[in-house]
């Protein structure tokens, strides 16, 4: 659906080159919600604008449904853009016009007959749950409602693709959740392909199927949400995951370990899929001369799959512990935790 092939974007600034996007390869499938996450300045905003050519690439190819937009004539590009909806962090609504006019705007500029516009506006406003706000002005709406107007406006032309530029970054956590659920519904009911960029791992975890992590214009890691959470490779990815999974052992617990002179046998155990439900530790306690002390843990769900991390301390003789560890490692991934490093 959307393919980035070795795409780069270079800005000249005071004679210096700035590589905002640097050799990016991403392939987004139809009907998928693809997330691009990165800190500000990572190049993700530029990346999403390359799709509808709000930014011209300096190198590489971007194919949208197999078509290279940079080869289109200006009218051809405008026509193509009508098939790519876009929503923004700050909504970008016309302040001087009603919700109704804002939502109708893409059809107005396409010269759609008024009757048709009216029916279609009612349809999309109903979909986003704003039927009663049609005659209000953007400044009378809350942030979440404004973003719903943005989504309705993006959907009105029945696009194939929806680009989301930090669409939830200006919203509070509750509203963020409801907008993300709405985006999911958009995908499920219209089979849209969604490319969303964000710096919030929470948003990615909530709705994305796959994700790419960007840093300094490069994609440093990409894969399914599940792969990324269960087995992050790059430190930045780990950072992002830590922002939603409390994987650091709280200091109070750490100092507790040190006080008891322990900390030699503290492990981080990562459970995925059905293994999260297996009573591994009670089996360990039963079959080996080892006691299991759970220090800290979190179990959550990713894409409907259980996913958890436990930090445990194994107490017992070294030889038994090695045997027990061996057993645990057969089913789940285990990582030793340094007492001072957490």
């Amino acid at each position: 659906m959307i393919q980035f092939e070795n795409v780069s974007k270079v800005y000249e600034h005071n004679g210096k080159e700035l590589r905002a996007v640097d050799g990016v390869d991403i392939s987004i499938e139809k009907g998928e919600i693809f997330g691009v996450i990165g800190f500000s300045g990572a190049g993700k905003s530029t990346l999403v604008r390359l799709v509808n050519l709000l930014e011209q690439p300096s190198g590489g190819n971007i194919l949208v449904e197999g078509e290279d937009l940079s080869r289109l004539s200006k009218p051809g590009l405008r026509k193509m853009r009508k098939r790519i909806g876009m929503i923004f962090q700050h909504f970008n609504l016309l302040e001087s016009k009603t919700v109704l006019h804002n939502v109708a705007f893409p059809l107005i500029i396409s010269g759609t007959p008024k009757k048709k516009i009216k029916a279609r506006v009612e349809e999309v406003l109903d979909f986003v749950g704003l039927t009663d706000k049609a005659h209000q002005y953007p400044e009378e709406l809350s942030g979440g409602q404004k973003q719903r107007v943005g989504i309705a406006r993006a959907l009105i032309t029945s696009p194939d693709i929806l680009l989301c530029d930090e669409a939830t970054s200006a919203l509070d956590p509750e509203t963020t959740k409801s907008i993300l659920q709405l985006l999911k519904r958009v995908r499920d009911e219209y089979n849209l392909t969604i490319l969303m960029i964000t710096h919030e791992m929470n948003a990615v975890r909530e709705v994305c199927d796959r994700v790419a992590v960007m840093e300094n214009g490069r994609v440093i890691e990409q894969g399914s949400i599940f792969e990324l959470f269960s087995n992050p490779q790059h430190p930045t990815t780990k950072n992002f995951i830590q922002s939603v999974m409390e994987s650091d052992i709280p200091p109070s617990i750490l100092s507790g370990i040190e006080e008891r002179g322990g900390g030699r046998h503290v492990y981080r155990v990562t459970f995925v899929r059905e293994k999260a439900a297996q009573p591994i530790f009670s089996q360990v306690a039963k079959n080996y001369q080892v006691e299991v002390n759970v220090l800290f843990g979190q179990i959550t769900e990713l894409q409907g799959i259980p996913f958890g991390q436990l930090v445990v301390e194994l107490l017992g003789e070294d030889r038994e512990i090695v045997r027990a560890l061996d057993y645990i490692q057969r089913t789940v991934s285990v990582q030793e935790v340094e007492a001072d490093a957490g």
């Binding site: 509808n52 709000l54 590009l77 405008r78 026509k79 193509m80 853009r81 009508k82 790519i84 876009m86 923004f88 700050h90 970008n92 609504l93 016309l94 302040e95 001087s96 016009k97 705007f105 893409p106 107005i108 500029i109 396409s110 406006r153 032309t157 680009l163």
Partner: peptide, 27 residues
């Protein structure tokens, strides 16, 4: 006029004239 609103209109496939008459001037 907020550049974002102009950008949004561009992303919708509005022509420069449409952006002038339907975004810049009314806003």
């Amino acid at each position: 006029v907020k550049p974002g609103v102009v950008e949004a209109a561009e992303a919708m496939g509005a022509s420069p004239w449409q952006i002038i008459l339907r975004v810049y001037v009314p806003e």
